[in-house]
Amino acid sequence: MTVLPKDIPGDSLKVTVGTANGKPGDTVTVPVTFADVAKMKNVGTCNFYLGYDASLLEVVSVDAGPIVKNAAVNFSSSASNGTISFLFLDNTITDELITADGVFANIKFKLKSVTAKTTTPVTFKDGGAFGDGTMSKIASVTKTNGSVTIDP
């Protein structure tokens, strides 16, 4: 049996954390987006972790974005102690894959008090994996961190 590389060099799934701005007490939304989904033969499963400074940001909610089908079954998240974990699994293993680019999740943060303008990162942590529509590992994932700026 011969195994051929399935990824064209330079191609990767792009996962990007967005940015937001606000004043202390505001609730802002930071999107997590996927790009080049079709090039990577869709997404059938993924789990990953984001870190944030809990002294500056309070997670209000984490909701599935419009590219997630049947989110009540296929999407899960949790947030505590400065870490947000995400889990997606197409429970049907074929019919509810992520097949389009767009917003995977929206994180709502309540901004805490600061004395001066502060930009705090929302960054990928170690761990996690992504699988394509056949549940094979997506070897190349380009992750881009985001941030939230609090301006009193």
Rank of each mutant, 00 (worst) to 15 (best):
A116G: 06
T115G: 06
T83L: 04
N74T: 02
S113P: 05
M40I: 11
D36N: 14
Y49C: 05
G51N: 14
V103W: 07
T120F: 02
D90L: 00
F75G: 02
A100C: 05
F34V: 06
K125R: 09
F86H: 02
E58Y: 08
M40H: 07
T123G: 07
F48R: 01
G131I: 00
T144C: 05
I84Y: 02
V3M: 06
K23S: 11
T120H: 06
V62R: 07
A20N: 13
L4T: 12
T27F: 11
V28G: 09
S136N: 06
V68W: 01
T45G: 02
K108Y: 05
P9A: 09
G51C: 08
K108T: 08
T123F: 12
T83G: 15
K69Q: 10
T19K: 11
K137A: 01
F109L: 05
T115C: 03
G18M: 12
L50F: 08
F48A: 08
T118H: 06
V103P: 11
I150V: 14
V68C: 10
S12F: 09
F88P: 00
V122M: 07
G44M: 14
V114P: 08
S140H: 08
T94Y: 15
T83Q: 03
S61N: 09
V32K: 03
S61G: 14
K137Y: 02
K125H: 03
N47M: 01
V148N: 06
F130E: 02
V148Q: 04
G18W: 12
G131C: 03
I138M: 09
T45I: 01
T123Y: 05
G146K: 06
V114K: 14
A20K: 07
I8E: 13
T118C: 06
D63Q: 10
S80I: 15
K112M: 05
V68Q: 11
V68Y: 07
P9N: 08
P152A: 15
A20R: 11
D95K: 02
D132F: 02
G128T: 02
D53S: 11
L56E: 14
V37C: 08
K39W: 14
L97H: 14
V122D: 01
A71E: 14
K112D: 02
P152S: 10
K108D: 00
I93N: 04
D101I: 03
I107S: 01
A129F: 00
V32P: 01
T83K: 15
S80E: 01
T33Q: 09
T144K: 09
A35V: 12
